[in-house]
Nucleic acid binder design. Structure first.
Lengths: 113, 113
DNA sequence: TCCATATTTCCAATATTATGGAAATATGAT
DNA sequence: ATCATATTTCCATAATATTGGAAATATGGA
């Protein structure tokens, strides 16, 4: 991961509403959550929520899939893994015995429903 | 760590100049680096650099210590550890066998000089 | 005291981000 | 076709962040 991608991901997560959305999606699992349900959970106007979801999507941290009229948003676990890897390698010097090539972070799995 | 502190830390790191400064400080080690040397490394005007350093300091990610006329900035490893812990617990559901109480991330150590 | 060095603070200009209502789009049902 | 539902896009407004020059502050030395 290069720095610009890391900055995008960090920017996406650096806003309270978006971080809350992302946390919610992470614990919601792979099947995802309808946009409306996210808005209800957060108490946000849908246009505002939509703006934040598109920021997260743009940064690659969430995906969405349509099913009828509803769009299911879900956390993109692999992207979060990449970010964790970037931070571990670049911002946590000393971790993993300081051998750069071995500082591969543990993989993230979706929660069981 | 609560969400507002996490948002502060993420905001501090979500800007390319600041992320670059922080990476530089992380690998520079505990003794820190004079502000001027950071500015030289980045090619930034000192007033701009000073602004970014204060953002990082405000977020708790860097410390500084004066020695004569020069201020040595250094990464605050423990704060970065806390952020990694927050992200691991809140944004990486499934890690560490999904047992919330056990998802304590490995500790970061400063690099040897 | 006066000067040089290191760095910050002040300030104004510019740029980017966040918000939410209203209109638009997409889909499915009757 | 018409209507209802789910969600986005558009737009204007407000808020916040970034930039860099100039002046201010802090420290040490002659």
């Amino acid at each position: 991961m290069e720095i610009n991608k890391a900055v995008s991901a960090l920017s996406a997560l650096s806003q309270e509403n978006r971080l809350t959305v992302f946390r919610y999606l992470v614990q919601a699992g792979l099947e995802g959550v309808p946009a409306g349900q996210i808005g209800e959970h957060l108490g946000l106007p849908l246009s505002t929520l939509s703006f934040h979801l598109s920021q997260l999507k743009h940064a690659g941290l969430v995906k969405c899939r349509r099913e009828g009229r509803t769009l299911f948003y879900s956390a993109h676990y692999a992207a979060m893994n990449e970010l964790m890897g970037y931070l571990t390698e670049n911002c946590c010097q000393g971790i993993s015995g300081n051998r750069k090539t071995s500082s591969r972070p543990r993989k993230v799995r979706a929660s069981k429903k």
